[in-house]
Design a protein around this nucleic acid. Structure first.
Length: 584
RNA sequence: CGGGGCGUAGCACAGCCUGGUAGUGCGCUCGGUUUGGGACCGAGAGGUCGAGUGUUCGAAUCACUCCGCCCCGACCA
């Protein structure tokens, strides 16, 4: 490709709206332009990158037996009604009507459509497993698109679905996908972690997220350098030092006045109060359930611990949890936040004809002589033995792990919590969709069984953006070789000198003949402009045809190392070939 | 959806408070000089000041409404 007629509108200044690095550089490098919030146009240079990413994805999907489909993005309402997701997806689904007034939506994901094909065509276990995938545009009406192409309303996703006759088959399909994902992201030059994650609204038994550590990400993950443990904060646990309680309180809890005490902190410094890890924190939540509506819940944690709301929702099997409003708290508990506790609340709720579930974090197990709110404004209880005094319905993991805590998986490891970007997510769906859509096959015994499914997603733009977040410097992007838009750029310092122009043309032809993707910078610009642009768009290698070329020498510049070496014209093609195509 | 910020030339911004000729830098076009890390000089082109309504003799500027974009939060396979 000749730069002189390849459309790369680079920008010298950074558009004011762009905050994250990948957004700034994609704009400056002339790769994307924004059409509306969360909707981007991909210009030729970025499309080359996306094509390379998609080709890697295809190769690895095909290698595990995946078969590529192309499904419609425009879906009729009916198929989404079958799984209940016409309603569940809520405002996140783009909806429209056709000329007859029939409801349609733009696909957010394709479990329904693929399962719809499966149920019509798959009849026997002998046809399984099937691994079906596509690379296609998805639409999600995000409440808040942000961070350039990282959170958008229209994006390209590779979505794959596996269909197996039983759980063992799903386990294998899942492992195959997982292994393929490792290859894909590695080939794309990304450093990533595989973390345990909550399955959330997708349902199913297990899920792994593929995460790239970057401040541009929105998820928090805990990782252990030592043993490789990694989990989304919504799943992460840690090992805590146990706390030695004084002897268990023998008497009933004792109420005492605590004027002015509103917080855990206040109670620490209050005379006769207690250290944070000797307090029981009591939080009132309202949980929403798919079947039986809303219900209040008490979540109990150690005073110095933070609740993780997703953990609470997962533990309850709730679709949603939210903090109770101050009025709700007072009505339920008889006191305001700051003086709440679990003692006696079960009975109080029952007396009011209501059910109140009490969920407590493992760290409170067997604790005694604790202090907590008395459900009377500005009063607390001391001498609380939790298992004697509070009827806990469910002991579970509720707390948010913090950096520096001990790894739950190895002896000496320490957890680090960092922001991460989700680039892939794989789910064991089980029979959630096959059951609701009646996708069954006959098994070996001639018995009709629901197909066991998995679903596996990769965000193509996010791979590109993550690569930039990970690989850039003050001058611009530094593409990993395998997804770079070009292998090498040939920079002719002055195209008005015929001998340089000719040398550049010859080198361009020779490099292309050697199987390389080459960008020839034949623009009539000053050398400085060309160097800056080349650095900005991040081609891994640059060959400079300039002063020394008349003596038979060119410069080979390594974008990542920012070092250049003189190479003779006769050797440069072989050198570039060796560097740029290594490992591919 | 709640909170905050911003809409003036392709990009970055000034002008607005205190109403009266729409400006600067980069980019773009033409001419000249220059030619290895975003050159210099000269001459140009380019804006219904986000939209609407109102106040006023007169609105980029004041008021109201709407739209759009960004950030924080809520939300999110």
């Amino acid at each position: 490709m000749r730069w002189s007629n390849f459309f790369i509108p680079t920008l010298r200044e950074v558009p004011a709206d762009a905050e994250v690095v990948s957004h700034r550089l994609l704009l400056r490098a002339g790769m994307v332009r924004q059409l509306a919030a969360g909707i981007y146009s991909y210009l030729p240079l970025s499309w080359l990158v996306m094509r390379r990413i998609m080709e890697i994805v295809r190769e690895e999907m095909d290698a595990i037996g995946g078969q590529e489909f192309f499904l419609p993005a425009l879906n009729p309402r009916e198929i989404w009604e079958e799984t209940g997701r016409w309603t569940v997806m809520g405002d996140n689904m783009f909806r429209l009507k056709d000329r007859k007034g029939a409801d349609l939506c733009l696909g957010m994901t394709h479990e329904e459509v693929f399962t719809g094909i499966a149920r019509h065509e798959l009849r026997s276990y002998k046809q399984l497993p099937q691994i079906w995938y596509q690379i296609q545009t998805k639409f999600r009406d995000e409440a808040r698109p942000k961070s350039g192409v990282l959170r958008v309303r229209q994006f390209i996703m590779k979505d794959a679905y596996s269909f197996d006759v039983d759980q063992a088959g799903l386990d294998k399909s899942f492992e195959d996908q997982r292994a393929a994902y490792v290859k894909i992201f590695t080939r794309c030059g990304l450093k990533f972690s595989i973390v345990e994650a909550s399955s959330g609204a997708m349902g199913g038994s297990a899920s792994n997220e593929f995460m790239v550590k970057t401040d541009a990400g929105e998820d928090l993950i805990a990782t252990c350098e030592r043993c490789g443990y990694a989990a989304n904060l919504e799943k992460a646990t840690s090992r805590l030092a146990s706390i030695a309680d004084q002897t268990a309180a023998t008497d009933a809890p004792e109420e005492f006045p605590t004027p002015g005490v509103r917080t855990i902190e206040d109670l620490i410094s209050f005379p006769g109060g207690a250290a944070a890890d000797r307090q029981i924190k009591t939080l009132v939540y309202v949980a929403t359930f798919e079947t039986d509506g809303q219900q209040p819940v008490l979540a109990l944690l150690r005073g110095d611990h933070q609740l993780h709301e997703t953990k609470l929702a997962d533990a309850l099997g709730a679709t949603e949890v939210r903090p109770a409003h101050p009025e709700e708290i007072r009505e339920l508990m008889g006191a305001g936040a700051g003086s709440l506790g679990g003692v006696g609340m079960k009975e109080r709720a029952k007396a009011a004809g209501r059910e109140l579930r009490i969920v407590a974090d493992h760290a409170l197990k067997n604790r005694s002589n604790m202090t907590t709110g008395a459900n009377k404004d500005e009063h607390h209880l001391r001498g609380v033995n939790i298992e004697r005094d509070i009827p806990v319905d469910l002991w579970t993991d509720l707390r948010t792990v913090q950096s520096g805590e001990a790894c739950p998986n190895c002896e000496a490891g320490v957890l680090e919590v960092s922001k991460s970007l989700e680039i892939g997510h794989i789910f064991k769906l089980g029979t959630k969709y096959s059951k609701s859509m009646n996708a069954t096959v006959l098994d070996q015994n001639g018995k009709e069984v629901p197909v066991v499914m998995g679903s596996y997603g990769i965000g193509v733009e996010r791979i590109m953006a993550a690569a930039i977040e990970l690989h850039h410097d003050a001058d611009g992007i530094i593409w990993p070789r395998q997804i770079a838009p070009f292998d090498v750029v040939v920079t002719v310092t002055n195209v008005k000198q015929p001998e340089l122009k000719d040398a550049g043309e010859r080198l361009y032809a020779d490099l292309r003949a050697a199987g390389l993707e080459v960008l020839l910078d034949d623009r009539d610009e000053r050398a400085g402009v060309k160097f800056k642009d080349a650095d900005l768009i991040g081609i891994p290698y640059r060959v400079t045809v300039g002063k020394k070329t008349t003596e038979g020498t060119v410069e080979l510049f390594d974008r990542a190392a920012k070092q250049s070496t003189d190479v003779s014209l006769s050797e440069v093609v072989a050198r570039v070939q060796q560097l740029a195509l290594a490992g591919s």
